[in-house]
Nucleic acid binder design. Structure first.
Lengths: 132, 132
DNA sequence: CCTCATCGCGGGCATATACCCGCACCCATG
DNA sequence: CATGGGTGCGGGTATATGCCCGCGATGAGG
C-alpha cells in the first residue's frame, strides 16, 4: 500500500536531479533543460523546430516556446528554411560559448555522480531508464 | 560525447512515464501528479500545506496551487488549523471515490510494467532512483 | 503586556510541457 | 492550373514546479 509507483519515484528523482544540474550549470546562465536543448541543437544545426522536437521527443510547441526564450537570451537565432513554412534554429556565437563554458561544469556533475554511485551503476541506470 | 547525461535521460524517462500513467489514470478525471498528491493527502489528512510539501518534497507554493486545482474539481477541501496561519487539506468524498476508482487502473499500469520488465528489475530501478 | 524574530500562506514571476485550433505553405492529382 | 490533403508554426489554454516578496499570525523575551 505504501509503495509509490515507479512513476512517482521517477518524477521525484527527476526533480532532484534537475535541481542538482540546474545548480551546477547555473554559472553559465541557463538551466539544464536549456543547456540540454542547446546541445541537441548544436549536433544538427540548423534544424527545424519539428525535426528538433522529434529528436528530443518533445512537443513541437514546447520546442518553439523554449527556443524563443533562448532567442531572447541571444543564444540561438531563428531563420527560415527553403520551405517557407519551416523555422530553423541555430546557435549563436554566444550560444556556442555557453556550451563550451558549461561543458566542464556538466562533466563535473556527471563525474561526481559516477564517483558517488559508481560508473557501472550509472551505466545500468541509464540503460534501465532508456528501456522504459 | 554523444552520451546524454543521466539528468536528460531521467527527464525523458519521466516524461514518457508521466504520459503513460496520465493516460492510464485519465478515466477517473485526474492526471498522475494529482492522483499521486491525493494519495499522499489520504495518508495524513487533514494536513497543512507546508507539512504536505515536506512529505512529498515539493515546494509549498506548488502544493498550494495544485491543491487549489483539486479544490476547484471538488476532490479536496481546504480548512483552517488551530494555528490560524495554517491551511489544511482533506479529501472530499468525491476525492476518496477517485482514489478508489483509480486504484485498479494504477495497479494495472504498475502490473503491465512489472510484466514487461520484470518485478526484480522494477524493484532495483526503484531503489536506484531513490538513491539519487 | 508589548516587541520582534519566525512561521505559514498567497500571489507574482518565470520556465517546462502538452494538446488543440487555425493559418500559411507545399505538393500531388486531376 | 486549380484544388485539396498534408505539413510546419504560432498562439491559446492548462498543469507542474521553483523562487521570492509581503502580509498576517505566533510565540519567546523583555
Amino acid at each position: 500500500m505504501s509503495v509509490p509507483c515507479i512513476c512517482t519515484t521517477l518524477r521525484s528523482a527527476s526533480r532532484r536531479m534537475i535541481a542538482f544540474y540546474d545548480e551546477t550549470i547555473a554559472p553559465v546562465g541557463v538551466n539544464i533543460a536549456q543547456f540540454s536543448l542547446m546541445r541537441s541543437i548544436a549536433r544538427v544545426e540548423p534544424v527545424t523546430l519539428t525535426a528538433l522536437g522529434r529528436r528530443v521527443e518533445l512537443d513541437r510547441s514546447t520546442i518553439g516556446r523554449n527556443v524563443r526564450v533562448l532567442e531572447k537570451m541571444g543564444l540561438v537565432e531563428l531563420g527560415r528554411g527553403e520551405d517557407q513554412r519551416e523555422a530553423t534554429v541555430s546557435l549563436t556565437e554566444a550560444g556556442h560559448k555557453v556550451l563550451e563554458d558549461g561543458a566542464p561544469l556538466w562533466d563535473g556533475a556527471q563525474k561526481s555522480l559516477d564517483d558517488r554511485l559508481g560508473v557501472e551503476f550509472m551505466r545500468q541506470l541509464h540503460d534501465a531508464l532508456d528501456s522504459l
